[in-house]
């Protein structure tokens, strides 16, 4: 966090925002390619969180490949582990892993499993894939850092369907009780889960009110508006005595028109060649880039 302060001060800089937008676009293309190559995966909720992850890794967090063993690094936990293609892609963009390696998603022998595993990739910080657990692990990290009087912040991204896990509310109560102001949760609120709309499966609204009632400082933002994400993360970092949560309103499948707003693309789904090409074209990839991403 200490070295990230200077970056935060630049948060409004158009250059930084452009870089982050570029990183987010890369992660979306990479995600489509890796899921196409894997012949299975979860594109909808991976695309909806690309801008958030791009902001975290591009500006907010003091976490770089060189700091991966530094106890003073900020931590990120992808509690909605099924969105890992986005994590792998943003990691690749920032040099935590190789861009081509990260395209081996979900294959035998690949370190890029279908959900992140810390013993394959230390920089993912913990193993996730069972909803609710990553959030608790992040709470444990925040507690442990505070007990050691260490300064890093802990960030964690949760899905909206994940709100249905009881463990989330155990952890929410615990974090508020222990005044974990070094913890920032972000909810990828795309309103959809595996089978249908949240509200049709088991309603989670009013979401912000629930978190307020649990003693958190709550920010509601547009999860695709990069300046807003950056400035809100910055604001959340100044919260004292309370954990903070960003309820980020997002669009499932964001960036790929035929996926947008459809729970059918939650996954696990297989992308046909045509679907992958259409998606990449919609994401602005040129023909040669498409070929490279899908074939090389």
């Amino acid at each position: 966090m200490s070295t990230a302060t200077s970056l935060r001060d630049d948060a409004a800089s158009p250059d930084l925002e452009t870089q982050i937008a570029e990183a987010a676009l890369f992660t979306r293309r990479h995600t489509i390619a890796s899921i196409y190559r894997a012949t299975s995966g979860h594109p909808g909720g991976a695309l909806s969180c690309a801008d958030i992850l791009a902001c975290l890794y591009g500006a907010e967090m003091n976490a770089w490949p060189a700091t991966i063993n530094d106890p003073g690094r900020d931590r990120f936990v992808l509690s909605k582990g099924h969105a890992c293609p986005t994590l792998y892609a943003i990691g690749a963009w920032h040099g935590f892993c190789d861009k081509t390696d990260a395209l081996t998603l979900r294959r035998l022998g690949s370190r890029f499993q279908g959900h992140p595993h810390v013993r394959d990739l230390p920089w993912v910080e913990t193993s996730t894939g069972s909803l609710g657990q990553g959030f608790s692990v992040a709470v444990g990290m925040a507690l442990g850092l505070k007990m050691q009087k260490l300064k890093p912040r802990v960030y964690t991204l949760l899905g909206d369907g994940e709100m249905q896990e009881g463990e989330v509310w155990e952890a929410a109560m615990c974090a508020a009780h222990h005044k974990l102001d070094n913890l920032c949760a972000i909810i990828d609120y795309n309103k959809m889960q595996s089978d249908a709309l949240n509200e049709d499966i088991c309603g989670i609204a009013p979401l912000a009110d629930k978190w307020r009632a649990f003693g958190w400082t709550v920010f509601e933002i547009d999860g695709h508006n990069i300046p807003e994400i950056l400035s809100t993360l910055h604001l959340a970092a100044s919260t004292r005595e309370r954990p903070s949560v960003l309820v980020a309103h997002t669009l499932k499948g964001k960036g790929v028109p035929y996926m947008e707003g459809s729970p059918a693309w939650h996954g696990s789904v297989k992308l046909s060649r045509e679907q992958a090409e259409t998606a990449l074209a919609a994401l602005g990839a040129e023909q040669d880039e498409i070929k490279e991403l899908l074939d090389v």
Partner: peptide, 19 residues
């Protein structure tokens, strides 16, 4: 508190930061 699931997973987080 009476929240064993959170406690168990949080132990993983505590261990991850050196406790």
């Amino acid at each position: 508190g009476i929240a064993e699931q959170n406690m168990m997973a949080a132990a993983g987080g505590l261990a991850a930061v050196g406790m």
